[in-house]
Computed example of a mutant assay.
Amino acid sequence: MHGPASSGWLLVALCAATGAWCLVRMRGGAREQRRVAGSEALMGFGMAAMAVPAAAFTPPAWAWAAYAAVFGPAALRALWAARRGSAHHLHHLVGATAMVYMAVVMADAPAHHHAHPGGGVPLVTGALLLYFVGYVLLSGARLVPVPAVPGAPPAVAWGERPELTRACRLSMGIAMVAMLLTL
Rank of each mutant, 00 (worst) to 15 (best):
G8T: 06
W9Q: 09
V12H: 10
C15K: 06
A17N: 09
A17W: 04
T18Q: 11
T18K: 00
G19W: 03
G19A: 04
G19F: 01
G19T: 02
W21K: 03
W21I: 03
C22K: 07
R25E: 12
E32C: 03
R35E: 15
R35H: 15
R35V: 08
R35S: 10
A37H: 12
G38P: 09
S39C: 05
S39H: 02
L42T: 03
L42D: 01
F45V: 01
G46M: 03
A48Y: 07
A48Q: 04
A49M: 12
A49K: 00
M50Y: 09
P53K: 08
A54W: 10
A55M: 07
A55R: 12
T58W: 13
A61P: 13
W62Q: 07
A63N: 05
A63M: 13
W64N: 09
A65F: 04
Y67Q: 14
Y67G: 14
A68M: 04
A69S: 14
V70K: 01
A74E: 02
L76G: 02
L76R: 00
R77Q: 02
L79M: 00
L79D: 00
W80A: 08
A81N: 05
R83Y: 02
R83Q: 07
G85Y: 01
H88W: 05
H92L: 10
G95K: 00
T97E: 01
T97N: 01
T97I: 01
A98N: 02
A98I: 00
V100I: 02
Y101V: 02
M102Q: 05
A103L: 11
A103E: 10
V104R: 02
V104C: 05
V105E: 11
V105T: 04
A107S: 11
D108N: 08
D108M: 11
D108Q: 13
A109N: 09
A109R: 15
H112N: 14
H114N: 12
H116E: 14
H116N: 09
G118R: 10
G120L: 10
G120Y: 10
L123F: 12
V124E: 06
T125H: 06
T125R: 15
G126R: 06
A127G: 10
A127F: 06
L128F: 04
L128I: 00
L130R: 08
V133H: 03
V136W: 05
L137R: 11
L138H: 08
L138R: 10
G140D: 07
R142Q: 15
R142V: 15
R142I: 08
L143R: 13
L143G: 11
V144T: 12
P145F: 15
P145Y: 15
V149D: 14
A152Y: 06
A152C: 09
P153G: 08
V156N: 02
A157L: 08
A157T: 13
G159W: 13
R161Y: 05
P162N: 12
T165R: 14
T165L: 11
R166K: 10
R166W: 15
R169C: 07
S171L: 15
M172A: 04
A175H: 03
A175Q: 09
M176G: 06
M179Y: 05
M179I: 05
L180R: 02
L181I: 09
